[in-house]
Amino acid sequence: MGKIRGVTYLASRWIRRQPMWLVEDLFIVLGFAILMFVWGGINGLRNVLVAWFISGAWGMGVNLVAQSIGWDKQQKIMDMFIATPVRPFHYVFGYFISSLIFLAVDFLYMLILIIYLNAWTIVLASLIAVAPLLIISNLVGLSIVMRIKKPTNISAITNPLQMMLIILPPVFYPASVLPETWRYFVLLIPTAAGAEIARQLSGLSSWHNLWYPVAVLAIWVVLGILASSRVVKWGME
């Protein structure tokens, strides 16, 4: 436990030194809520709640954890950690816990909206979808960032990947607005599948085919394990 605490302590220093990132999040949450309300009314607000849980989970793995570990690798901090009793689980879990602050703060920002809408079913449904998505985003993020050789590519690759898979597929909008043939194709994207699970469980989707997005996420978990196990090495290379 001490090892995880130590990694979490070190990994959370940047948030303590640069708290304005959390303030930036407030404006993004607020801005999208206004945008969705103007165009979609109360239903828009309910959908933005789902979107925030999904985008938060995806960004945490692909962006926060992956970037931090990528920089550790480039700056040889990872080598220092390898030559200690710390195991890969302690290390990745330490980063994971330190990054939870963003999900927690975003939740606090959304709390007024959740209470106003009495949207606890949406929260519960979103949390169910978030669980596998966190695993996938961390595995995908690690498998990408551990392949990166040039430090300048760390943010250049993970940032667009994060945004692309949040903004383009049906995360901020329901997949049910798409023609059914397209829907099966688009829901192969993990963020879209996660959002669809949350919407179907909370009654926000008019489509009833829960097993398809569940199967997609299960396949992504397997793919993520396979992809990351090839490149995530803890010494002895």
Binding site: W14, D79, T84
Partner: peptide
């Protein structure tokens, strides 16, 4: 063991 690698750069946010 403990290792101080060559060209190690401690995180800019760490004191």
């Amino acid at each position: 063991i403990a290792l101080c690698p060559q060209d190690v750069r401690v995180d800019i946010n760490w004191s």
